[in-house]
Nucleic acid binder design. Sequence first.
DNA 1: CGATTTGTACGTTCACATTTT
DNA 2: AAAAATGTGAACGTACAAATC
Lengths: 460, 460
Amino acid sequence: MPVNSFEDYPMTWKPVLNRADKPIYRALAGQLERDIREGRLLPGTKLPPQRELADFLDVNLSTISKAFKVAELKGLLSATVGSGTYVSFDAISNAYLLEEQKPESLIEMGAILPDSVSYRPLRDLMQSMLQEDDYAKWFGYSRPGDSLWQKDAAVRLMKRAGVRTSREHILFSAGAQNAIASALASLCRHGDRIGVDHHTYPGLKTAAAMLGIQLVPIRSETDEMSPEAVLYACKNENIKGLYLIPDCQNPMTYTMSLESRRAIARIVQAHDLFMIEDGTYHLIGETRLPAIAAYAPEHTIYIAGLSKVIAPGLRLAYLSVPLKFLDLIRKALYNINISVSPLLAELTARIIVSNQFEQVLALHREEAKARNRLIDRYLGRENCLGEPEGIFRWLRLPERYTGDRFEQIAAAQGVQVYGGGRFVVGSTAPANAVRLAVCSPESRESLEQGLIVLKKMLDE
Amino acid sequence: MPVNSFEDYPMTWKPVLNRADKPIYRALAGQLERDIREGRLLPGTKLPPQRELADFLDVNLSTISKAFKVAELKGLLSATVGSGTYVSFDAISNAYLLEEQKPESLIEMGAILPDSVSYRPLRDLMQSMLQEDDYAKWFGYSRPGDSLWQKDAAVRLMKRAGVRTSREHILFSAGAQNAIASALASLCRHGDRIGVDHHTYPGLKTAAAMLGIQLVPIRSETDEMSPEAVLYACKNENIKGLYLIPDCQNPMTYTMSLESRRAIARIVQAHDLFMIEDGTYHLIGETRLPAIAAYAPEHTIYIAGLSKVIAPGLRLAYLSVPLKFLDLIRKALYNINISVSPLLAELTARIIVSNQFEQVLALHREEAKARNRLIDRYLGRENCLGEPEGIFRWLRLPERYTGDRFEQIAAAQGVQVYGGGRFVVGSTAPANAVRLAVCSPESRESLEQGLIVLKKMLDE
DNA sequence: CGATTTGTACGTTCACATTTT
DNA sequence: AAAAATGTGAACGTACAAATC
């Protein structure tokens, strides 16, 4: 290859290698990271082939490979044999939904908050708990004896989701995110790969990046994760497991068909993958198909988060874990939490077995439905996907907007929404869409105000 | 080297390599792990030199090296240039202090539980919180505004420990273990090394093993971590940070001298290490030296756990984090927890600023002192180390017992203690000692019963 | 369909630094 | 104090397989 070709077809990235700071691969990885973070390399950019870079810098091919691998495990790059290496779209998105000091005036339709119908029954229940004679146990370490009936309550909750499990398989975590992080940390080692939707829950992305776990977007024709695509990733992408949200997928809102559930379960069993099934939105729906866990019970960690179903302040999720992973995940939860609050664990169990639970769910749904009807009125149902009782929507935008651009403009006009870039995985192109949280605005009025702003933006 | 030497001086480990299952280094690492876990390779065993194994198996030196590295990052091995590779003593110790189903009859002197003096004031405070008009906020996601004064309470608490910090530097975690795990996950990458006491808190060991972080025991003449040894590890062991417990170190009970604190702070600054200072037992003591964080504020993550000081059920710890790590650790906490319970965060802050806090501390100390006097009566102070108001002791055993053997025998006689093997790091030889939890037995009477058993074992 | 492009990862070589003898 | 033993880790060479053309 003539050396001059560097001049003729300029490489998209021409690192200057200071041979002084060793090792080379680290220096390179560092420069790559800086160039991405500081905007000199834009998301979606195709990097030069490894061989070309090696040639250019006069180092070995493997040295480039190693440098790229470092960046890839941080979620900065995404490479495919044959097609090359691309800067991830989510490399710089500030996916952390922290926003320590967000202006008060913003109408919140970004973060998903449930409404507060459950708070009064929770308060009342807790008050009576504190008046019991043996209240002391709520403030110590939880004792194994107490958790038995709490686990039965978890079993009961999961039965509603079609998950057949039993007391011995139940573990507690400090919320669904905590469960996900624990499952990832225990089931994967550094460098492992797992398959996920091409747009997925941002908390999974950041946790995986922190742990050096690579996310492989399962590419499907439609939004819905298809069994064929899973099979493909299984055979070609060396994935060890799957993470999925079969009910009201976050953010795309699809609910997986029964056939796909069964097919994916079969694939998972045939290839001995693990599956993390996030059931956060299961009980939000009025009627539901059985969880995938029902079809691949020996391979599925089912996570029943309670923040969205009952109240976020509980900081509790239930896990149903197959025997072969039980010890591993129990240890991970211990490493991360030691234990959960016995007070909150008891409160949660009590509300679940109480007759107020159904009522809470019904009230949640009623509020969500009313708000969704309001949304339908402004944005329609065709380009604004979502279930009638769902608590977020997926608004597809006209060509002229990217999701992130729309987010920016909306924020400038006082409405917080989350653009597609926050959810996108790897080198997938971010969808021209934004996610709208249905129940987060304080009142239906403020929701409507937000909708007016969005509608206007779409009509402009 | 004559081939026959394999016969004459049998190698301590003769793996049989099935060349069918590739890659070689994984196959080897797998076999090594199995041989350790199934007891065919005992803790403390010196493995053959890498070159010898490479020769024996007819593979390249680096292939062995790579296999060993895998095992080392899981905490199974510990290698030193010049002296060889040893099976870690803690490779198989069931360090997880879970014990789901422990017989009721055991007198618990293993796990460290604080006494329950704080439970009534906590109950009362929480009841009044639930009666307030805006009780609803305890069940939602915590809102930034609320946490401001809670952070001020944290600052106030830390000031007592000599840590000068401010609101902006405070983060909340779901307990000290949660804080440690978050700090490790954010400050270290896979393969990084950190220095720790040669016997240390088991929760750190298991978290580090899960994250692939290597623990380097800081070898010192005495039990106390010495600045010289830190400096040595710094120069020769390529450590990125330190974890230490300067007040009433767990399990060895030493409290670090002022000179050592200053010296270590200087080293940390000079070599730009990070330091995780575990302040769990700081407020247990009546008088205390300033935290090391006071001397290296830009490098120290100070963790103030509240389980031992107030109550375990709060599941809360405060972190004071220097600016340069703030974002990183905030993100890690988000990845692992999203947030802490606003109810428990508020309760904790209120008890700290209330006038009952001092009283709780005083009552804790009183109980601990009384129990320690009881222990002194049976076991003396010479071989049973610990502070007068400490909540655990370190009992040095006569030669004929190993710590783990003593633990076994004591358990058979109805007393749970924790042997040195549970705490030992890397290839250090486990101390002939056991840790005794002072306040864990339900009553002073049952403590005394336990002491009678232990005393008898020592006198036999 | 076959050739080419492209990333992957294992095994290898080697220089080096420390510890032990 | 010199020599031998020993582990470390970067860089390299290479076979391979998938994607693309």
